[in-house]
């Protein structure tokens, strides 16, 4: 299952559209890093609205993505975590610590726009 990555101005938007296997997640990770380098993007939004399960591997991979992108000087926002998924995640102790989150794509974009307006 390929995750499409869209370039929107200075941002990249990756929209997960179905359940992902571990291999898909790793592919998403490398794909995003490559594109951030290539386009010199300032931020990445990963939309996980369609993910009905976020287990330890998925959670760890998202944190790694955010970490690696930060090393490139860019920001990552995870958007669209469903209430039930969030509930299950905290039961497992998965909190995406240190990664920015937003309700949905719209909120994620608003967050980034505000952030970059105030710094630039």
């Amino acid at each position: 299952m390929d995750v499409p990555i869209l370039k929107q101005g200075e941002f990249l938007i990756a929209t997960i559209q179905a359940a992902l296997s571990d291999a898909d997640l790793l592919q998403l990770r490398s794909g995003l890093i490559q594109q951030v380098v290539r386009f010199r993007s300032r931020a990445v939004i990963v939309d996980v609205t369609a993910m009905d399960v976020m287990d330890s591997f998925a959670s760890r991979t998202l944190r790694e993505i955010a970490h690696m992108i930060r090393l490139r000087g860019a920001e990552t926002v995870i958007v669209g975590i469903q209430p039930e998924v969030a509930f299950a995640m905290v039961q497992l102790g998965l909190t995406l610590e240190g990664v920015a989150t937003a309700l949905d794509l719209e909120e994620g974009l608003a967050y980034l726009n505000q952030k970059f307006r105030s710094t630039s």
Binding site: I81, V90, Q91, T95, L103
Partner: peptide
Amino acid sequence: VQTVEASRLLGA
């Protein structure tokens, strides 16, 4: 603590 963390995952 879990409630606080879960809320943050939804961006609040």
